[in-house]
Every structure is written in C-alpha cells, then in structure tokens.
Computed example of a mutant assay.
Amino acid sequence: MSKTIQIGGLSVEVVRKAIRTMRVTVYPPAGRVRVAVPLRLPEETLREFVLSRQAWIQKHQARFAALPPPAAQTYSAGEPHYYQGRPYELRVHATTSRPRVVLTDEHLDLHIAESATAEERAAALNAWYRARLKEQIPVLLAHWEPIVGVRTEAWGVKQMRTRWGTCNIGARRIWLSLELAKKPPGCLAYVVVHELVHLHERLHNARFWGLMDQFMPDWRQHKAALQANPTGPQPTGDDAD
C-alpha cells in the first residue's frame, strides 16, 4: 500500500513493505521519488531519512530534467535501434514467413509481415534481444560465478521499467532487464556481478561495495556507461541497479 506525502518540498511516494531498511529511488523522466520503508517504521524516522537524502534526490532530479525527451519509437525503416551499445539503422522487409531479425555491420534487418503494427514489430525485435541475452548470460555466469564464489539456482530475462536486475536471495534466482541487450557488453557483465554479489550481501552497504571492488575492480566505469548510454530506462536509487 502506498501514499504520497510532502517532505522538505519534495513529493514522496511512500510504500510500506516487509523489509528491514529504507530504500529511495528517483525515476525518470520527471524525477518521481519513491521510498520503500519497513511496515512499522515511524513516520518521523522516514522524514529524517528523506531529508538526509534530499541533496542526493535533487541532484538526480536535476539530471533527469536536463536530459532531452526521448523520441517515441515507431519501428519504421531508418530508425536507429541499439544493440550492445551501438546504434543500427532499422530496415524492414516484408515477408510471409515468421518474423526474424538479422544483424549486419550497420543494420538491423527486420523481416515481418507488411501489415505488422508498430507493436508487432517491437515484439519481434524484443524476441530477438531476449534470444541474444539468453546466449550471453550463461557464458557470463560460467565466468563470474567462480570468481564471486556463488552459484545461482535460476536466472531469467524480463522487461523491467525501473531496474537493471533483481536478486531473490532465498531462491538464489536473478532476473536481468531485457534492456541490457542494448547496452555495451560491460554493462551486462556489471549487472550480472552486482546481482551475484547480493548472494553474499543483501544490502548496498560498505561490505557490498567492497566485494564489488574485490571481484570487479572496474565496476564503476561499467555503471557509468550504463547510466550514460542513451538507451533504455535510467533509474537512480539504492535498489535500482
């Protein structure tokens, strides 16, 4: 259950959940603020927490406000679409066979029915992105699980609007955002390692970031690339990596 309250000039959506610590997230494009808090946390403690993070929140709201509005994608020929951090020009070819996507040096060739809608074209491209991630993720897990010293029981890919990945520690299962197919390869590796490290440490605390330094010393540059690259969601928050 959620409610919106005013704290220090900020409009804050408060969601009470069965968690132990507070988490704040700022969402694009308008800089919406959401705070997840334990069920019985006093409101006074919540307000103190938000005020202590006010400068951080406003910094990211300003960053989102400075970004140009994203162009709506129509999935028509000539439109740029990203794969592994590179833009490719979309070419659309009419076919009576099942939809398929072919990657060339400069183009994404989408073969689909001439009557296909923008939604159907998007679904075909997303199916191709999903297949590429499902090829890449097992290779990354085979490389990084021995380094991090953990093993996942299951993993999956799904569309996420506000996160790059999540980890269910009890089930030892990680989910990765479909949008990562559009990011540079190092970004995907960073999110995989990030979620694996959560199997050692649930919280984003000093121990967690120390483990990231130990296992992936260059994680900061990959996180910066993830946030700077012009494709996909751009969440900013304690629980939105």
Rank of each mutant, 00 (worst) to 15 (best):
H200Y: 06
G170D: 06
H198G: 02
I57Q: 05
P99R: 00
T236V: 15
S2T: 12
P146K: 09
A94Y: 09
E43K: 07
L178Y: 06
M160F: 07
R161C: 04
T166N: 10
H107Q: 14
I7S: 08
T95F: 07
R121H: 00
A62Q: 11
M216V: 03
P28G: 02
K158Q: 12
G78Q: 06
Y27Q: 11
W175S: 10
R16G: 01
R47S: 09
A116W: 04
R132N: 08
H93Q: 11
A189F: 03
H222S: 12
R202E: 15
L199E: 01
M22S: 11
W56V: 03
R151M: 11
Q159L: 14
V92C: 02
R98M: 13
G8K: 04
G9W: 06
V50H: 04
L141P: 03
N205P: 01
P42T: 02
P217K: 06
L226N: 01
W164N: 02
P28Q: 06
R151D: 10
Q58M: 13
V102Y: 08
A154I: 08
P87Y: 01
L108R: 00
F208K: 02
D109F: 13
A36P: 09
A72Q: 14
V26T: 05
V139E: 15
L46V: 09
V192R: 01
R98S: 14
Q6W: 13
L103S: 09
A224T: 11
N168Y: 02
K158D: 04
L46H: 07
V14L: 15
H143T: 15
V150G: 00
P138E: 02
V37M: 10
W219Y: 12
Y190R: 05
L196C: 03
